[in-house]
Design a protein around this nucleic acid. Sequence first.
DNA 1: TTTTAATACCTAATTTGCTTAGGCATGATG
DNA 2: CATCATGCCTAAGCAAATTAGGTATTAAAA
Lengths: 112, 112
Amino acid sequence: MTKKSLYQGHLTTIVLKLLADNDEMYGYQITRMVKELSSGEVQLTEGALYPILHKLEANGLVEVRHEKTNNRTRKYYKLTQSGHHETTHLLKEMQDFLKQMEVLISPIPKLK
Amino acid sequence: MTKKSLYQGHLTTIVLKLLADNDEMYGYQITRMVKELSSGEVQLTEGALYPILHKLEANGLVEVRHEKTNNRTRKYYKLTQSGHHETTHLLKEMQDFLKQMEVLISPIPKLK
DNA sequence: TTTTAATACCTAATTTGCTTAGGCATGATG
DNA sequence: CATCATGCCTAAGCAAATTAGGTATTAAAA
C-alpha cells in the first residue's frame, strides 16, 4: 500500500523536545540532530521543519535570535515560558499515545 | 496549538491488527472494540474507518462476506493471505516507530 | 407515543501536515 | 570548476484524517 511517514503529527513534539534539552538551536542543526539521534531513520526535512519553526514562533512558543557567523546567517530558536509548558503537555500526550499504541498492537483482544 | 489526533497514519495498522486477532469483524464492531480496548481514548470514527476498509478491500488485503441478521446488514471483513503479510509488515514498522519515538523523547541529547 | 439512542452502513467537502521539488547564497572539497 | 555541505526559504500537491452530513431499523426513554 502506501509508504508515508509514520511521524506525521509528531514532528512538532520532536522539535520542542530538542529545544527543551538543548536550550538554543538553529534549523539546520535540528535536522542533523534528529537524523543522528535516530541513526538516520527519521528524516526531518527542511520542507517540514521551517514551517513548524515559523508556526511555533507565530504562536509565541519560541523566540528567535539572529546570528551571523562568517557570512552565514543562523536563526537560533529558544523556548519561551509557554513553549516549555506546551512541551511538557505534548510530551505527556505522547507518552499516553505510545502506551495506547502498545496496548492496541500487542495483546490479543477477545471477541465480545 | 492544534489538537489533532495523534493516531494519524496508524489507523490502518490498528484495523489490520484487530482483523488478524479476531478472524472476522464488521465495521461497527471495529469502532466499538477500538474504543473499548483503549478505554475510550481512541476514537476510530466511521468517517475514517469505512474508507479504510474499502481501500483494504480494493487492494486485496481483506475479503468481505455479507450477512443479514434480523433486517440488519453486516459486512464481515477477513484478512486475505496478503493481508496477513501486510499486517506483519506494518506491525514491524510500528514497533520500530515506537522505539524511535521513545529514543527521541526520553533521553537528553547532547549538543555537538 | 413520540423522540432519542443504538445499531449498521455510507459519502463528500474541508482541513491538516507532510512530501516533493524547487530557489538563493556562501564556503569547503574533489 | 563542479559538487557537496551549510544555512535559510516557499509553494504545489497529496494523503489521511475530521467534520458533517445521509439512510434505515430497532430498542429504550420521555
